[in-house]
Design a protein around this nucleic acid. Structure first.
Ligand SMILES: [Zn+2]
Ligand SMILES: [Zn+2]
Ligand SMILES: [Zn+2]
Ligand SMILES: [Zn+2]
Lengths: 144, 144
DNA sequence: CTGATACTGAGACTCAGTATCAAAAAGAAA
DNA sequence: TTTCTTTTTGATACTGAGTCTCAGTATCAG
């Protein structure tokens, strides 16, 4: 069992929740894919294997994975939610190609600290942030 | 006629579009309010005066205002779209209170230039960005 | 004025996400 | 293993934002 699965089981237990086959499937799929995926994409893929899987379960589970820091949420170019496995990954933000949808991750300690300073100065207690840059990736630069 | 209205008329004309009473009402309301407003809020308020106003017209017009830089779009804490009049306002980003919804504007030339540099380094052509910080504003710091 | 064209609004539709709730599964305890 | 409580599931209906369509209407250049 991977580290992530163990963390998930522990988290679930510690909150008095239950571990289920569906939750396991969803986590497994998210980890394996390594990409950003919409709940809808997860739902459709896994439903092929398990035709009884419910849409709501997928949404609920992804939210749960977010709570225990195994997944993180990114808003795509159309304003829709997307999840990526985030265990062991340090914080990062995204550049998102408006043509092909590809995301490029970036992280900048300097931006992060400027951000924190600005918030502090305005008396704002930061809970989370979203820093997304939209445009064209290098591959799509000259395409229609 | 305000500067903004003139710009709008010119833009509309230059694109071979037409100026209409509805578009004028919507722009007027956005300018007057000075806040961030959801399309739905604009729709409901203006519909009281003009019960025949259509929801689609509001969405279409706000999009048009965005195109000609008279309005800009901000995603709120729930992922919904919001517009603010932006003529003559330099670029800025937002800190959004998750409790009361209040937004505090900030701008940081240093963050902007770091951002641009990162994008350049990754061969990314920036079209726009979204930098939103969520948390509690100073007034809501100690409330439930 | 007139005609070409863009615009409007009613309403149907789409799509992401949520609420409900009875039936099923988990897991603790015996 | 069996029982019992609690959580989870999934079918389904629903919500709410936003889009599409299209027939009727308004705009504006000529
Ligand atoms: Zn960041
Ligand atoms: Zn691309
Ligand atoms: Zn900015
Ligand atoms: Zn507040």
């Amino acid at each position: 069992m991977t580290e992530e699965k163990k963390i998930f089981r522990d988290y679930v237990k510690s909150r008095g929740l239950k571990h289920t086959a569906q939750r396991d499937e969803i986590l497994t799929y998210l980890l394996k894919s390594g990409r950003h995926m919409s709940p809808e994409e997860v739902f459709h893929t896994l439903r092929e294997r398990d035709p009884k899987l419910g849409r709501a379960t997928v949404f609920r589970t992804l939210k749960l994975l977010e709570e225990c820091r195994l997944a993180s949420r990114v808003t795509d170019a159309n304003g829709h939610q997307t999840y990526e496995g985030s265990y062991g990954k340090p914080h990062h933000d995204h550049m998102i190609c408006v043509r092909c949808g590809r995301t490029v991750e970036f992280s900048s300690p300097r931006i992060e600290s400027l951000q924190a300073r600005i918030a502090r100065r305005k008396g704002f207690q930061v809970q989370w942030h979203r820093h997304e840059i939209f445009g064209r990736c290098s591959r799509c630069e000259n395409k229609i």
